[in-house]
Design a protein around this nucleic acid. Sequence first.
DNA 1: TTGGGAATTGCAAGCGCTTGCGACCCGCTG
DNA 2: CAGCGGGTCGCAAGCGCTTGCAATTCCCAA
Lengths: 341, 341
Amino acid sequence: MPSLVQDVAERAGVSVSTVSRALRGVPGIAESTRKRVQEAAEELGYVASLSASRLATGRTRTVAVVVPLLSKWFFAEVIAAAGRVLSRAGYDVLLTELSTPELRDAFFAAPRLQGRSDGALVLALQLAPEELAALEAQGQAVALVGSERAGASSVCVEDRNGGRAATRHLINLGHERIAFLGIQEAPGSTLGGVPPAERLLGYRDALADAGISPDPGLEFGVGNTVDAGSAAMATALTMAEPPTAVVAASDELAFGALATLRGAGLQVPGDFSVVGYDNHELAGSVGLTTMDHGVAEQGRLAAEALIATLDGAPAAVERLQPNLVVRGSTAPPRRLRAAGS
Amino acid sequence: MPSLVQDVAERAGVSVSTVSRALRGVPGIAESTRKRVQEAAEELGYVASLSASRLATGRTRTVAVVVPLLSKWFFAEVIAAAGRVLSRAGYDVLLTELSTPELRDAFFAAPRLQGRSDGALVLALQLAPEELAALEAQGQAVALVGSERAGASSVCVEDRNGGRAATRHLINLGHERIAFLGIQEAPGSTLGGVPPAERLLGYRDALADAGISPDPGLEFGVGNTVDAGSAAMATALTMAEPPTAVVAASDELAFGALATLRGAGLQVPGDFSVVGYDNHELAGSVGLTTMDHGVAEQGRLAAEALIATLDGAPAAVERLQPNLVVRGSTAPPRRLRAAGS
DNA sequence: TTGGGAATTGCAAGCGCTTGCGACCCGCTG
DNA sequence: CAGCGGGTCGCAAGCGCTTGCAATTCCCAA
């Protein structure tokens, strides 16, 4: 039913090879001929068969986006941004969610991207060297988001600085007992390897900078969910000497913490301060002070890096600086305000 | 570099056609032969070239997921659920975001799915008849989520019932002045056509059922964003006779409303009740009473419907009933409680 | 007028797999 | 013992496009 190159060729009175070249903008075709061919193609509603040209060229013009969990806002946002860049550049976007360890293992065990895509955009996954090698063995150009590997392009944020800035903000307000809600890989996680422990390190840095002695009891490592944040916050409140503020390694955790605080009848920021990390879409609506790290921009930059790699550019890594966004969830601790008034 | 059918054929001592058939499970191959071929393939790490088999068969084993806005939680969740079903069934998932009217028009103007996918899963978009026809003309099997079209499979929820149930819940609590925050297509929206006005109709139904005369001034139509909900709520509060409760057509709108209420110093549910719609991932953490409509299930069902269609089944439509999830954002209006105490 | 070369275009050989059809091998029936 | 039918397999013709290389045309300098 759809017309073929031949049809166009006949209609334009040229050979199929000329049609092929004319339509793809290959140089060496007279402008007049090209126009004639384009018109013929247009009239017939001709579109080159993808499978055929892929087979002939060996290129797919498709990029696989590999993500641990699509329904998390962070990933959706990154993918959306990356997708826009990619499709504008003429690439199709193939979605691959590796939501369980089984899926992840299966994905890397077989050459699943072979002939399916030209490149892979890998989000958050901490690739083992052999996993990265596997991708490359399948002829994939690869770009990473949220991790760094020798030989691969990547964009990542200076999370240690971010953790430090978030914590410093609280210290500047006068807080001294500050808890940290960290993301700890759950058993069922597919992230693999060491996720943003950087943020925790930044937290410790800030404490050290301020001469506050760290209390391991204030460092919580939980799954990256609202409920986990909520639970950890609840635990923190039962401590003999509870914290007066918390920095969460993600806004989701912070949301959970806020829920617990509200449930406990505590005022935020009156009785307790919290700062999150991500600048989640909904952070504004709950007035959460948080670290913004250009989520959409990460996607955009990674897509551009991948395209560059596909065009033969050498691997490059881009580092983003997170920024503190102050909203209404942080204030000086009650102690100070009481003394001050 | 990757080995070809021929290599496997030689290694197994058979012809290429036998290899092809053996590996794909086509009947008519002796079990012993099949096993031998599989071993040979395994040893060589052979994987059939996708482009080649796609060209030869004319099938892509790929499904395009078409979505207006990927970064919205609802869509991400639906896609994630659908994606799991699809990939388990051996289909690749191609992502297509139509975030602007221009993109949408361009998408339907050209046969963009031609030879790219076997089917399309269309989310939320209210397809014009010719748009649906265009997809089918490209040989796509299509399944819809959130809309219904003659001849196409779809899964949709009884939103009118949902709107009614949400409103009735408030009425049962004793509210009489209830506002409705509806989703109205913004100029830049790509949804097209009439989106969930059903929820509004349900709201009116409930009022009518209770003999409450509707007040058009209480019906707000805004964009589906937190900020819009926030703004509309602010407007509602300035009314001469403000409402005591609101039903929002989405949890995002509800989040915005909550933010405004909090900002205005009003207690929820003490001074004001709000019920949302979606059962958003974060609805629980803010204690939002809302309508659950099985978001993930919609994705799952739609994917299954699409696969069925691809397997030759006739179009079918699946209707889901939304359920009220009561949390802490709704209570009797202050008036009643004051009188009661 | 004529040879050289640049600019265009056509030829035909793939790209790697699928599949209709015929060949072949057996065990059996008549 | 000849012939038949079912079960297996191989042949070879595509699927529709790309591309190296040769052919043709045309313009201009010599």
